[in-house]
């Protein structure tokens, strides 16, 4: 499996949850993973119910079998200052640049520099080795910007390399691009079985492929079981309302007769959704990208839910 796992997805599809579950799944059996966040939303801290993450790699979870998940909220400004210190021993100058507004300029105004710093830091973590020679992290999982911006975000290094045609930023951007375009990286897109996210996923894949970025999996999140389909609902709604009322009454449910209509309406909505989901699944199949499906968590995405999703991912072959 690729060592840099980038997880993107339309807003509201649960990409942060999926990224966290993936980090947990990959850490199973004594592995060490780093989960990075690049948008300053502190989504990881909220998910793991810990305080806001500092700009520091910190252990946030233990995986089954003794693995460890570390987390890092990458901050572009701190990454730039680190970078200046690391390569130029410019600690003091960094502060002076900050006072001048140059750091602000570099991290918010200057096109792409921010994204280069964010992806650069993630790539650094991918390549980092311990003194003994092994990789510090077996896998790095990135909770990346949403599908609509992912290609631009990852590809910005190319643009920056073109803009800064010489110098350290140019070199840095090219080094990052080499990792991102290699099999070392896989970009996953999280979606729901709904029209807009599926359409965005299809567009996202086309853009990634156009930019020669490695597409990993489509991860269909929040898949709910199909309990009844149209045929069943049609059968129920026919002449059998009385039978259903009797069956309900037999279970001791009060007011059984009045429940029949609302229950059947819900069933009709369910059947309609099943049909829509079937269509969307068809659209996804045409994309010819391997697909994982993860179940809907009725109780919401809490820590227990994360471990459940991680287990699901293992079953689907993640980290195997």
């Amino acid at each position: 499996m690729s060592r840099l796992q980038v997880v993107s997805g339309k807003g509201g599809t649960g990409k942060t949850t999926v990224a966290a579950a993936l980090a947990l799944a990959l850490a199973t059996e004594g592995k060490r993973t780093l989960l990075v966040e690049v948008e300053g939303r502190q989504g990881i801290a909220q998910l793991f119910e810990t305080e806001a993450l500092p700009y520091e790699e910190r252990k946030i979870a233990v995986a089954p079998g003794g693995g460890e998940v570390y987390a890092l909220a990458i901050d572009a400004e701190r990454a730039l200052l680190d970078y200046l210190q690391m390569f130029y021993k410019l600690g003091g100058a960094g502060r002076a640049l900050k006072k001048l507004g140059a750091i602000d300029f570099a991290t918010t105004i200057a096109p792409g520099v921010r994204d280069v710093l964010l992806t650069g830091k993630a790539c650094e973590a991918v390549r980092r080795r311990e003194k003994q020679g092994g990789y510090t992290y077996d896998y790095v999982v990135m909770d990346a910007p949403p599908t609509g911006r992912i290609t631009r975000f990852l590809n910005v290094n190319d643009e920056v390399a073109g803009l800064a045609r010489i110098g350290p930023i140019h070199n840095q951007a090219q080094a990052v691009m080499r990792v991102l375009k290699s099999p070392e990286t896989a970009v996953h897109l999280v979606t729901l079985l709904e029209e807009m996210p599926v359409q965005e996923t299809a567009d996202g894949i086309a853009e990634l492929q156009e930019a020669e970025l490695p597409v990993g999996q489509v991860i269909v999140n929040m898949v709910r079981p199909h309990l009844l389909d149209e045929a069943a609902v049609g059968a129920a709604d026919g002449d059998h309302r009385d039978d259903i009322a009797k069956a309900l009454a037999a279970t001791g449910v009060p007011g059984a007769t009045e429940l029949v209509s609302p229950l059947l309406e819900q069933a009709a909505e369910h059947a309609q959704r099943v049909e829509l989901e079937r269509e969307q699944r068809g659209v996804l199949e045409k994309l010819k990208v391997p697909t994982y499906e993860l179940p809907y968590l009725g109780e919401g995405a809490d820590i227990a839910g994360l471990y459940r999703l991680a287990k699901e991912l293992r079953k689907l072959g993640v980290g195997a």
Binding site: L227, L228, A236, A247, L263, G298, E299
Partner: peptide, 28 residues
Amino acid sequence: RSSVEPAAEPTVEELTAGLLRLHAERMQ
């Protein structure tokens, strides 16, 4: 899905149980 295909029509109990499970999901 074979349990609910016309060829293998579900019993009224199965159907009702399905309706109840759907409802439970909705209520959650």
